[in-house]
Design a protein around this nucleic acid. Sequence first.
DNA 1: CCCGTGAAGTGGGATATAGTGGGATTTCGA
DNA 2: TCGAAATCCCACTATATCCCACTTCACGGG
Lengths: 147, 147
Amino acid sequence: MNLFTGCYTHAIDAKNRVSVPRKIVDTLRDLGSPEEVVLTAGLDRCLFLYTPAGFEQMGKAVESSPLGQSSTRDFQRNFYASAEPCSIDRSGRIVLPEALKALVGITDRVVFAGVGQRVELWQPETWEARQMASRPQYDKQATDVFR
Amino acid sequence: MNLFTGCYTHAIDAKNRVSVPRKIVDTLRDLGSPEEVVLTAGLDRCLFLYTPAGFEQMGKAVESSPLGQSSTRDFQRNFYASAEPCSIDRSGRIVLPEALKALVGITDRVVFAGVGQRVELWQPETWEARQMASRPQYDKQATDVFR
DNA sequence: CCCGTGAAGTGGGATATAGTGGGATTTCGA
DNA sequence: TCGAAATCCCACTATATCCCACTTCACGGG
């Protein structure tokens, strides 16, 4: 399946390395990018992880927003300037850039959350809190989608 | 027939494996997915089981929502992060992810309930209670369903 | 009526691999 | 040329996966 799913918590070692969950790597392979990803500042205090192709496509959406608005320009700056390509080494790990770690408060462990077209990286505590807070609305919204 | 029906109770072993009822597997084969399914958090404290195709179709409804809304992002997170593809091994079993088991209180046995387009997985006691509670209103519910 | 056959569900041991840690080597800047 | 840092490479462990065997039950034939 070519969608990211599942939720996995992995440890970050002293060299800022973290294993990419096997299931995520499998999906990356299905998407044609088994060893290159792009990490960038996400929304709600997390990082977004895309395939290079997925990142470019997301970029198109950003481009099409009206440049006239200063908020658009600010967003573009964050989106592009904080983006970093990362390669997956032969033991299935990436190195988390220090700047991105600091940006979302990731310290020694990270949650990989598959979210369809993208993967999100969270500090475990932040992820937990966010899930707790949003779950009550989930059932309500879900009735429109499930059948 | 390409609709899921019937109700079966199976044991979960020490490795979190559970046999998929033969009748369910037959329907999966008719739907063109004899050995891959997607498990996800359902409604009313049960899990939903779909074919990969069925799951992706639901994803389409999710994709069309605006990423700009934080409620959309939260919904996507719940929907995708709680989903796991599972493969059916050669003895007809799947492994139930620990997180999903915990989410709906499944312990050592599970009820497979065929519900048309999907299959539901329940903790037996929860299933029983739900059936008990809703049975008396069956006739009344029918007025909402058939019209 | 009894036994043979096969399929469905279950249990357990052997093997593979995902995740992690640490040392060695290379690269880059001073 | 030297030192620090990043990268590469190998090793270990816990867990997941594969594979085989057993049991129970339904069915059918002798």
